[in-house]
Design a protein around this nucleic acid. Structure first.
Lengths: 197, 197
DNA sequence: GAGCTTAGTAAGCAGTTGCTTACTTCCGTC
DNA sequence: GACGGAAGTAAGCAACTGCTTACTAAGCTC
């Protein structure tokens, strides 16, 4: 008799792991950590859900893996670029599907989770801010950089998560242009540092 | 014999409702919609949790009530003021505890929930943007206003939700000063409207 | 081909969730 | 004081969650 019970997936641990990571990255970006179940991830990866625990131990660890895996790629891309303009393009590029861009959205959607918040705040924030702060020589360069970062996150949030119009449909170039110009005085070197009363 | 079974709360439907609303507003702001359980809310309100459903029908409706109730107060406070400076102060004031300020944080923490996202995007975003857009007379005033709103939300997120330093500890005045100045060129009237190549 | 390791599977457990139901008790009205 | 509606309570249901376990079978070594 025909056996329809055979395991569909030929034994391939690496492929299985990758499939789970991919599916998880997508779903966390689409729905956030809480709203994504391990069964969802396994289903999209077309993998038995017990394997998720075999390979990653727990949902939390899977999440951490997604974050670290993709945020490394994200940081690499940032490291090779130098302007807030470039960074912003990176945050804006939620259409492009290399996976790394998903990550910011996933974190924005999941930052009620402590781990996502930590990565967003420390790792990513730290690296971005470090680069941004170099663009200014004022005493509070870090604060200024934080403000810029807040803007980038806010824009990403309103575009990808809220879908707020007209911002969501605006071209990257226009947004980059505005933000770059508005922010220029925050990040310029040798600011006049004139305090307003 | 002593009866320790008597209901602590004297019959007072209005007070019960209010207590539930208050507790819910606090908890949604602290943890977000998903991470808040109806048992949490009832416990903080010191109310039997079945009453939550008696008064609000469902957790979703309670959430909606919190949002609409407090965002009205929020919009009122905005309506009496006129500058993005004021709006920003409002977003920043998560310490002040009138309840209305909680709301933005609650929404920022819960916007994976469709309802929170909707309020954030449509009602609040709509009203803020309307006021902000009036400050500019350029053709894309709405987009510029969206960008400003994104900044305000981003700052609120990084301060209240992520707790990113040094932004979280920075004084409101400093932040307001920077943002107001950086944003001024976005929102000024009769902008030169010179396109960059 | 025997035997071992391990990828993959099916089933289900224990805890939590939002919500309901059947009940008790308060309190104004007559 | 009886009574009836409404406020408040206790208990639990059904669904879902992350995770585990006991198992099957694939594939490498010899």
């Amino acid at each position: 008799m025909c056996e329809d019970r055979q395991p569909r997936r030929r034994r391939d641990p690496a492929a299985t792991r990758t499939a789970l990571l991919r599916a998880a990255a997508e779903l966390f970006a689409e729905r956030g950590f809480d709203q994504t179940t391990v069964r969802d991830v396994a289903a999209r990866a077309e993998v038995n859900q017990a394997l998720l625990f075999r390979y990653f131990g727990s949902k939390q660890e899977l999440f951490a893996e997604v974050l670290s895996h993709n945020s490394e790629a994200l940081l690499d891309s940032v490291a090779t670029q130098e302007l807030p303009r470039r960074i912003l393009e990176n945050v804006l590029a939620d259409r492009a599907g290399s996976g790394a861009e998903h990550t910011i959205v996933a974190m924005l959607r999941s930052f009620s989770d402590e781990r996502a918040a930590r990565v967003l705040r420390d790792e990513l924030g730290g690296s971005y801010v470090e680069r941004l702060a170099r663009l200014s020589d004022s005493a509070d360069a870090d604060l200024r950089a934080d403000l810029v970062l807040a803007w980038l996150f806010g824009i990403g949030m309103m575009r990808s998560v809220l879908g707020k119009e007209p911002l969501a449909e605006a071209s990257d170039e226009v947004i980059v242009g505005y933000v770059t110009r508005a922010v220029s005085f925050l990040l310029e070197k040798s600011a006049p540092s004139e305090e307003e009363d």
